[in-house]
Computed example of a mutant assay.
Amino acid sequence: MSPKPHTSDLCFITQKTVDEVLTHLKTCNVVCIEGPVKRTGTRAKLLSVYFRDPDGNLIEVANEVR
């Protein structure tokens, strides 16, 4: 059985700034569906952007804000 679209929600923490992430997404023609927004992570507060991968899964890329 293969995973169905829209079943995953992944978060990646990056050292790049959210502005750098947004610029890279735009260069790759990826539409940001939300963000930057403040969120609460397990280790720190986050500044996050959201988009969907080609299979429709939700991807979050975030900076830890200390």
Rank of each mutant, 00 (worst) to 15 (best):
K4Q: 12
T23F: 10
L22C: 15
K45T: 08
V61Q: 01
E64C: 15
L47G: 00
H24A: 14
T17F: 01
T27A: 15
P3Q: 15
I59A: 11
F12S: 04
P36M: 02
V61K: 01
E60V: 07
G35K: 07
N63R: 03
L47D: 04
T17H: 04
V37R: 07
R66D: 12
T14L: 06
L47E: 06
E60S: 03
K26P: 03
V65T: 13
N29F: 05
L25F: 01
G35Q: 02
S2M: 08
F51Y: 09
N63K: 05
R43F: 08
T23H: 14
I59P: 09
T23I: 12
R43K: 11
D55S: 12
L10Y: 06
R39I: 00
I59R: 08
Y50M: 02
C28L: 15
T42E: 15
D9A: 07
N57R: 03
A44Y: 07
I33T: 14
V30Q: 11
P3D: 15
E20P: 01
C32G: 03
K45R: 10
R52A: 08
L58I: 09
T42A: 15
E34Y: 03
T27I: 10
Q15A: 13
V30A: 04
K16I: 08
A62D: 09
D53V: 02
P54D: 04
N63M: 06
K26I: 05
S2R: 13
E20G: 06
Q15H: 09
P5E: 03
Y50A: 02
T14Q: 07
T40F: 02
L10R: 09
R52P: 00
V21D: 11
C11H: 11
L47H: 06
C28W: 12
Q15I: 05
C11W: 03
L25P: 04
T27G: 11
C11S: 14
D55P: 00
V49D: 01
K16P: 00
V30K: 13
K45N: 07
L10G: 01
G56C: 06
T23Y: 10
C32D: 05
T7H: 04
I13C: 09
P54A: 03
V30N: 08
F12R: 11
M1F: 05
C11I: 14
V37N: 00
D53G: 03
